[in-house]
């Protein structure tokens, strides 16, 4: 479980994340939605322990984010981050060295499903292949919290299906999944909750199926309502 209270990250006078109160519970897949600059990536990085907050707090199972939480939190950033002298196999070995919950077997299987050569050099990967590698290595962990920032970006249709299946297979009653994506349509069926961020603030959190049955709107519709420019 991830909880944050009045979580804030300021860069100078600008707040990338502005006094956010949020609780994410295991057993759900959260779609973190918002245009670029709404605070999704910064929020995720704070939960991953990569960025220090400037105000408020963020906790994993009641304790502040730190070395312990990193054992159970798997974060996949939008940018490539592997050492460029590595091969895909080296990347797997690195994760194996530092993450107890990493399974080399699962990793190899995922690479196969996504058509990636384990001997491929990171330096030579196209952006699509790099995106697949990032996903494979992240999902090969048996973490308690998964945060995937734009997991479908730059990925071909078939690989997207693989990734979706992979995410759904991994989702469990004791795991928190947070996905952010511009591909709203993909997220409609995978997520059961939507978290809408705007200018660093939390707009709302909705149970998607409930929203569909009571308001008769899709997540995409709600997205347009929240972020669209009002006419008149």
């Amino acid at each position: 479980m991830i909880t944050c209270r009045q979580l804030t990250k300021k860069y100078g006078s600008k707040a990338a994340v502005d006094a956010v109160d949020l609780t994410l519970e295991p057993g759900h897949v959260y779609a973190m939605m918002g245009p670029n600059g709404s605070g999704k990536t910064t929020w995720m990085k704070m939960a991953a322990g990569l960025v220090r907050s400037t105000g408020g707090e963020i906790l994993y199972n009641g304790k502040p984010i730190g070395v312990e939480s990193r054992r159970h939190v798997a974060y996949m950033s939008t940018e490539p981050y592997f050492y460029n002298w590595m091969t895909a196999r080296d990347v797997g070995k690195y994760y194996q060295d530092f993450f107890d919950d990493f399974s080399m077997e699962k990793y190899e299987k995922l690479l196969q499903r996504m058509d990636l050569d384990i001997a491929a050099k990171v330096r030579t990967l196209s952006s699509g292949m790099m995106a697949k590698l990032k996903i494979a290595v992240t999902m090969a962990r048996d973490a308690k919290v998964y945060m995937l920032d734009e997991p479908f970006n730059g990925i071909d249709l078939l690989a997207r299906d693989e990734i979706r299946t992979c995410i759904l297979e991994e989702a469990a009653a004791d795991k928190v999944m947070v996905l952010s994506s511009h591909l709203v349509e993909e997220m409609e069926t995978i997520a059961d909750w939507a978290v809408f961020l705007k200018n660093g603030r939390l707009v709302e959190m909705r149970d998607l199926e409930q929203m569909r049955s009571t308001d008769h709107v899709s997540m995409a519709d709600r997205y347009r309502e929240i972020y669209g420019h009002t006419e008149g």
Binding site: A48, V67, S77, Y81, F98
Partner: peptide, 13 residues
């Protein structure tokens, strides 16, 4: 640089 993720995402102090 972005390769900072490699070190700082791991559970190392």
């Amino acid at each position: 640089t972005k390769q900072s993720h490699m070190l700082f995402m791991t559970p190392n102090t």
